[in-house]
Design a protein around this nucleic acid. Structure first.
Length: 555
RNA sequence: UGCCCGAUAGUAUAAUGGUAGUACGUCAGAUUUUGGUUCUGAUUGUCUUGGUUCGAAUCCAGGUCGGGCAACCA
């Protein structure tokens, strides 16, 4: 307990900065572009940014880097805010890069004034053609040496809408021979005659991310700009802007993005899945999005705990999906109430239990909780639903469930012994017959009989019907993105199995969207918030229980 | 073949010149009215070659392998 948890490399940097006094206040930010939904990889970034500020008494802003009106939308802004809040974080200030458009425009004018930026008439293709390659230097545009005055008036004409998309851009004048491609006169502003989700038609020129992002950090006085590895090569450019403009010297630190097995983690790919209707939307429970995981039944605690467990480093990584599943099981095992649900029902007839007799037994809500989490009523009768695969005509080795002659405990009820069964013409077992031991009633068992197996059940006359959705991994291979083929060819065709007529116990009738349960011996489930209606229960399986028997059979 | 970054069990992550540890996974056992949970034990690792040092996962040099960089995307 007293064991000190070692610092991650970002915490070490922060502590070092604080100790040396190079930074006195920790100020971070989470800077999503509102062009898609947040996924579990963003959760890592969110936990890092908010966690760092929180740990060292600083603050964290939420800032939308909305510099490309073509792809951005308020729908995404709303979902991002909802997801960050749901994860349990509160931002200090809410900002938008678009709030800084005037300021950024003035920065651009200042750069032109210092002879450090110029208007280029070349097309995108022409610029690319003379940009060189990583091994060859680029060539100067014929417009590179325009006078400051000409640049100033051209840039203001760009702003005024005199030119069409692509006709002109504003470029920083840096070094066309730089081995870093981002320093070869990067574009600062481009013309896009497109309405912006916040500024509407006020602007027709928009700053590029590289110009806007770093300067937005400076404006907000972000001390530590945490981002993913691919932006490392952009850092010299950000630092160059800061130096030339004399703005607040935010320092950037990069970490390796999260990858998870059996899924994809790029907004582009996730968007593709949504647009091509390979899933039912951003919040499809199979998606690694925050909204998908939420609908699937994941808790914010489990996701935060996961982010803590995976740590943070600069090396490429791919985390086992099993760890995420471990985190939600760990949480739900302690907190979810137990219920009995039969997914594939067959009848169990107790031949020595009086027909028409009923009694109400007690089922513990959660054995992990104090006083078992209280109890719920379980109606019992001579005719029950049990799981079809809990009965076998011939018992294999190590079979602890029902088979002719075998005894099992009915969870929270009696021990029964199988006396026979009936089959239909197709050879399918339709009814299992048994006799119960009256002295073996749960909690007051004086029978002296011990059994290896316990199965779940529901009294047929008191059962409700429900739809249950069983989800499996979205992809068949561990890393769909690393293969040569299109990632979509690896989609798991069996990632969703819909069971339309599961039998559920009466206590589940009043389940509310977002309620989470453990269906005994089956897994953790939550009531679906979108598909459930008055009189129709739809449950999503969050994750199955560990299944030692399934493993035994496979091995 | 330019520049930048990285390399510790299967997967992650510690050890900050001094006994390579932890988690998940896997395997075995105990407990169990969930083949769940819990508990116990086992398993497996410093990319490579040199160098510095009493001592190297750690510092230095060469190599190998992996990732990133040439959008008017972010």
């Amino acid at each position: 307990m007293s064991e000190e948890k070692s610092l991650n490399f970002l915490e070490e940097i922060v502590e070092d900065n604080l100790a040396k006094g190079t930074v006195t206040e920790i100020h971070t930010r989470f800077p999503p572009e509102p062009n898609g939904y947040l996924h579990i990889g963003h959760a890592k970034s969110i936990c890092l940014n908010f966690g760092l500020a929180d740990k060292y008494g600083g603050k964290t802003n939420l800032r939308f880097d909305d510099t490309n009106p073509v792809t951005e939308d308020t729908e995404y802004v709303d979902s991002i805010k909802e997801d960050v809040k749901w994860l349990g974080f509160n931002w200090e200030e809410e900002h938008y890069a678009s709030d800084y458009f005037v300021q950024l425009y003035e920065f651009a004018l200042a750069m032109i004034g210092k002879g450090l930026a110029y208007v280029d008439d070349l097309s995108a293709e022409e610029i690319a053609a003379i940009k060189g390659t990583p091994t060859e230097p680029g060539k100067a545009s014929p417009f590179r040496n325009r006078s400051i005055d000409e640049n100033l008036s051209l840039f203001s004409e760009m702003k005024a809408g005199k030119y069409n998309d692509g006709e002109k851009v504003l470029r920083a004048k840096i070094d066309l021979a730089s081995p870093n491609m981002h320093m070869r006169d990067p574009i600062m502003y481009r013309i896009k005659k497109v309405s912006h989700h916040r500024t509407g038609d006020a602007w027709c020129i928009y700053p590029m991310y590289d110009f806007a992002h770093g300067q937005s950090d400076s404006i907000e006085q972000i001390s530590h700009s945490i981002c993913t590895l691919e932006f490392e090569v952009h850092k010299p450019l950000y630092n160059w802007y800061i130096e030339q403009l004399g703005t607040f010297p935010s320092k950037q630190f990069e970490f390796a993005r999260l990858n998870l097995t059996y899924t994809v983690m790029s907004k582009r790919k996730l968007l593709q899945l949504v647009q091509e209707k390979l899933v039912d939307g951003w919040d499809d429970p199979r998606m690694p999005t925050i909204s998908g995981l939420r609908r699937r039944g994941y808790t914010p605690e489990s996701i935060r705990n996961f982010c803590d467990k995976i740590g943070v480093q600069r090396r490429e990584n791919i985390i086992d999906m099993g760890l995420l599943e471990f985190c939600i099981r760990e949480d739900l095992n302690a907190t979810a109430q137990r219920r009995m649900v039969v997914l594939d029902p067959i009848k169990l007839i107790i031949t020595n239990y009086p027909q028409g007799k009923t009694e109400v037994l007690k089922g513990e809500n959660n054995p992990e909780e104090e006083n078992h989490g209280g109890y719920r009523d379980l109606p019992f009768s001579n005719e029950l639903w049990i799981e079809a695969d809990d009965f076998l005509e011939e018992a294999p080795k190590k079979w602890f469930r029902l088979a002719p002659g075998m005894k099992v405990r009915l969870k929270s009820a009696y021990i029964v012994q199988c006396t026979g069964y009936t089959k239909n013409e197709a050879g399918k077992v339709t009814e299992v017959h048994c006799e119960y031991i009256p002295e073996s009633k749960s909690g007051e068992d004086s029978s002296g009989v011990s059994v290896k197996g316990t199965i779940h059940w529901i009294s047929t006359d008191k059962s409700e019907s429900a739809e249950v959705r069983l989800y499996d991994r979205l992809f068949k291979v561990e890393n769909p993105s690393s293969e040569d083929e299109d990632f979509k060819t690896f989609i798991n065709p069996n990632s969703l199995e819909i069971i339309t007529s599961a039998k559920v116990e009466p206590a589940l009738k009043d389940a509310k969207p977002g309620d989470r349960f453990q269906f005994i011996r089956k897994g953790y489930f939550t009531l679906d918030s979108m598909l459930s209606k008055e009189g129709k229960l739809v449950f999503n399986r969050t994750v199955g229980l560990k299944d030692a028997w399934a493993k035994e059979q496979k091995g």
